[in-house]
């Protein structure tokens, strides 16, 4: 390593620390303070650490709303991802394997989902009409609808790397289309499936806007909405607000640490055309 790279690196580290790490330290420090100390949040060290106390307090707020929110968010995320993986993989598979006019139209319609902003109020009206407004099922289906386009593109690109001979060998062996898909193709989609799961779980877990519109009501609270709801309640207890931020940042952090590679491949797909 040249000297320039070393010094440049140290300088970059210093700047990155200030710009990107200090804000997280700020959250951490103030999440450990007493209410009076945190009322003017700063980088000052807490005079007494009450990290655990704050954690217990924030969990107990509003009759354990945070636990309920975690439960709801996990149900929505898991449910939506299960459907997304199966349905998007089926579409991506046929789109890639069967080039035709129908496939081109389907591919184009799927692409529009990446661009068009959802029409929120008509969606609310529709959900009310079919009885899915303010329900977790409805929210799951909404997340599926909004996530499909991205997942289909990922799956379609990956299916191209699976030789067609494998499908045909299975067909000669007597496999039905469903058997070819579930017994041959889906197991081979494992790497891209993992990418889809990781990227979509973060997206759905972090989603604030759509639960705000489609899932009102305190019994339907999701983790992002806990912050929003507590924001007004906690003006005198900023330590708890920061503790709340910390708690909902932990799941993405864990996913990031363990699945860095999948996140990178999912987020950069499309950057490199070929």
């Amino acid at each position: 390593m040249r000297r320039g790279q070393l010094f440049g690196g140290i300088a970059a580290l210093a700047i990155a620390t200030v710009v990107f790490i200090l804000p997280f330290l700020f959250v951490f420090l103030n999440a450990a303070k007493s209410p009076s100390e945190a009322s003017q949040p700063s980088f000052a060290w807490p005079s007494e650490w009450q990290f655990w106390q704050n954690l217990v307090d924030v969990v107990q707020v509003r009759d354990y709303a945070l636990l309920l929110a975690y439960f709801n968010s996990i149900v929505i995320t898991v449910g939506a991802i299960a459907l997304l993986v199966i349905f998007a993989a089926m579409v991506g598979y046929v789109l890639q394997r069967r080039p035709s006019r129908v496939s081109r139209v389907v591919g184009f319609v799927a692409l529009t989902g990446l661009m068009i902003p959802p029409a929120v109020v008509p969606t609310i009206w529709l959900l009310q009409e079919i009885g899915l407004f303010k329900t977790l099922h409805g929210m799951v289906l909404i997340q599926v609808a909004y996530g499909l386009s991205f997942c289909i593109l990922l799956f379609r690109a990956f299916v191209a790397s699976i030789p067609r001979d494998l499908d045909e060998a299975a067909i000669v062996d007597g496999a039905t289309p469903l058997q070819v898909f579930f017994r041959v193709i889906l197991p081979l989609l494992k790497p891209v499936t993992l990418t889809v799961i990781v990227v979509q779980s973060i997206t759905i877990f972090n989603d604030f806007t759509h639960p705000l519109y489609y899932l009102p009501g305190s019994e339907n609270i999701t983790v992002q909405l806990t912050l929003y709801n507590f924001q007004s309640q906690f003006t005198s207890q900023l330590n708890l607000l920061f503790m709340n931020i910390l708690l909902i940042t932990i799941p993405p952090l864990l996913v990031f640490i363990f699945f860095n590679r999948q996140i990178v491949s999912g987020m950069t797909s499309g950057a490199v055309k070929g």
């Binding site: 030789p163 001979d165 494998l166 045909e168 060998a169 067909i171 000669v172 062996d173 007597g174 496999a175």
Partner: peptide, 14 residues
């Protein structure tokens, strides 16, 4: 294909 009493060996082995 599966009802024809045939079996196939592919170039890529598949």
């Amino acid at each position: 294909p599966s009802k024809r009493g045939i079996a196939m060996v592919f170039q890529s082995y598949a």
